[in-house]
Design a protein around this nucleic acid. Structure first.
Length: 294
DNA sequence: AAGAACTCCTGTTGGC
DNA sequence: TGCCAACAGGAGTTCT
């Protein structure tokens, strides 16, 4: 569900209430999400200060005083909601349901010494939380294999070409694979490919010349990825079903989609008379315009 | 070793 | 109205 822009929006929402605060109390309402929650979860967090709240790819990283890092992933339906002391947002009723989701799926609640409570809600439980030593974070199995941040300096046409050279997989699968480039998901891959005018079913190897040098297509997809992500972050992410910002508010980038969810509608590219088509790749929906994405 | 299929889980939607 | 299949922003595991 949440891709990089949504996770970054959540990070920005949580940072003011979590960074530099201590965990006063932890409510853990079930033993596991996708994986078991950390051993002695409460003991390892309570009384400790969260030094910083960072993001890597689609992961939130809470660096905890004492040398541990809490790695959190929202899966498909994970959501964080903040309730400040004296607010009624966490009490039963329609208001809470609208803001934070069905309370039956409130699995973990962090209470801070600043009087805020942060609730993790996740109906499908594809999300997870694991703890690891901060020193060994880069070697953690979940982190080690991640490709570069799409908004960082190392993600560029040269990198993509070198990585995609001689790859048989199609472009969409290549960009969805977090080992190649991290943080993209189904929505933003579809949007970036449309912006770049590239077909999702073209072989990834088209990004490189025989020499390994980047093609003009590689330049186009690299800048399209950056542009789409930056615009989506500026819009607070995309709200389709589950996703909400930490104040319960909606992101609004979904109104700026060029292809995602627009099957049968007209292509929005200037001068293109094509119609957006939905196909299925690797069991996931792909939206693209066959007329202008080649 | 790359690539594809299968899997986890709940909720919503659309067709009959 | 009910029932059932398809689908949903992800990605680890297991196969070929």
């Amino acid at each position: 569900m949440p891709e990089l822009p949504e996770v970054e929006t959540v990070r920005r929402g949580l940072e003011p209430v979590l960074a530099n605060r201590r965990i006063a109390r932890l409510e853990q309402r079930r033993p596991d999400l996708r994986f078991p929650l950390p051993e002695k979860f409460s003991e390892r967090l309570c009384g400790r200060r969260i030094e910083t709240l960072a993001r890597r790819a689609k992961y939130l990283l809470a660096h905890i005083e004492g040398g541990e890092t809490l790695i959190m992933h929202l899966g498909m339906s994970g959501r964080f909601t903040i309730a400040l002391q004296g607010s009624s947002a966490n009490e039963p009723g329609n208001f809470a349901r609208t803001q934070g989701g069905d309370p039956r799926h409130d699995h973990v609640v962090f209470h801070t010494d600043g009087g805020a409570s942060v609730t993790y809600n996740d109906p499908r439980r594809f999300g997870f939380m694991v703890m690891t030593s901060t020193g060994g974070l880069e070697d953690h199995p979940l982190i080690r294999q991640l490709g570069p941040e799409p908004l960082g300096n190392t993600m560029n046409a040269d990198y993509l070409a070198a990585r995609a050279r001689s790859r048989q997989a199609d472009l969409k699968a290549f960009l969805m694979d977090q080992r190649n480039i991290s943080g993209l998901g189904n929505i933003y891959v579809c949007e970036a490919l449309h912006r770049a005018g590239l077909s999702p079913i073209r072989a990834a190897a088209c990004l490189a010349k025989k020499s390994g040098a980047p093609t003009e297509r590689a330049e186009r997809i690299a800048s399209a990825i950056r542009a789409v992500l930056n615009e989506a972050i500026a819009a607070g992410g995309s709200s389709l079903r589950d996703y909400r910002q930490t104040d319960g508010g909606l992101g609004y980038f979904q109104h700026a989609f060029s292809v995602y969810g627009r099957a049968g509608e007209a292509c929005l590219r200037q001068g293109c008379r094509g119609t957006v088509r939905r196909t299925v790749q690797a069991g996931r929906s792909t939206f693209h315009c066959p007329a202008c994405q080649r």
